[in-house]
């Protein structure tokens, strides 16, 4: 028989998922902070990102970061998608939720009655995580479009031309930042989820139902 105490100890995810998550954090930080400096060179919205939040010091430096970190982001992201498909991670953990399940869990979350079970996604999490993965894919594709609008002409027309592709790239960035804000806020509410992205934690939702 299993020792119940032992059985309830687990990390949030398999080791590959945890490693790819933290690599993605680094790559995405480089892309965002460098990207904000690039945006500042030709701002399309009536604001600039503050200099303390940017990377590279000037446009050339920021582009060097952006066009270097893109390899890490894409290679790591591709590895994650392949792992997600072949390990069953997507099928098991990330099936798109039914609207009913989403509304039920969303209501429970709003009432602060939605338990956080380590390693198990509720319907709200499934929609958010699945959604941000799709958004990241669009972000990479629009990024390729504005990096190589002539060589990847077909991709650019898919996004309605160079100017629109660039605007979509910016809009997706804003959604990604929005996701990160919500994600970090939830981690702040349930801090043991941060620990669980490194090592095993007790997975009993009763014990950890502090949300």
């Amino acid at each position: 028989m299993k020792n119940p105490a032992q059985a309830s100890m687990r990390p949030a995810h398999s080791l590959p998922v945890r490693i790819m998550h933290w690599v993605n954090v680094y790559a995405l930080c480089c892309m965002l902070f460098g990207g904000w400096e690039i945006y500042n060179a030709s701002p399309d919205l009536p604001f600039l990102f503050p200099q303390w939040a940017t990377l590279g010091g000037w446009l050339g430096g920021a582009l060097a970061w952006h066009l270097s970190a893109m390899w890490l982001l894409v290679i790591n992201g591709a590895a994650y998608v392949l792992y997600g498909i072949f390990s069953g991670h997507f099928k098991r953990d990330l099936p798109p939720p039914s609207p009913k399940a989403f509304l039920r869990d969303m209501w429970a979350a709003v009432c602060l009655r939605l338990p956080h079970k380590t390693g198990h996604y509720n319907a709200v999490q499934r929609l958010l995580y699945g959604g941000v993965i799709c958004i990241l894919v669009i972000e990479v594709l629009t990024g390729l479009s504005i990096w190589k609008p002539v060589q990847f002409g077909g991709l650019v027309s898919l996004f309605g031309g160079f100017v629109l592709a660039r605007n979509i790239h910016l809009a997706m960035m804003i959604l990604i930042v929005g996701f990160i804000v919500v994600h970090l806020a939830l981690v702040a509410i349930v801090p043991r989820t941060l620990v669980s992205m490194f090592k095993s934690v007790p997975s009993d939702p009763q014990e950890a139902n502090d949300a």
């Binding site: 480089c30 902070f33 010091g57």
Partner: peptide
């Protein structure tokens, strides 16, 4: 060019080429 930033601090900088 002479300053540090949040991004810079996070990624070990003043790295601006």
């Amino acid at each position: 060019r002479g300053s540090l930033s949040l991004g810079g601090l996070a990624m070990l900088t003043g790295c601006n080429l």
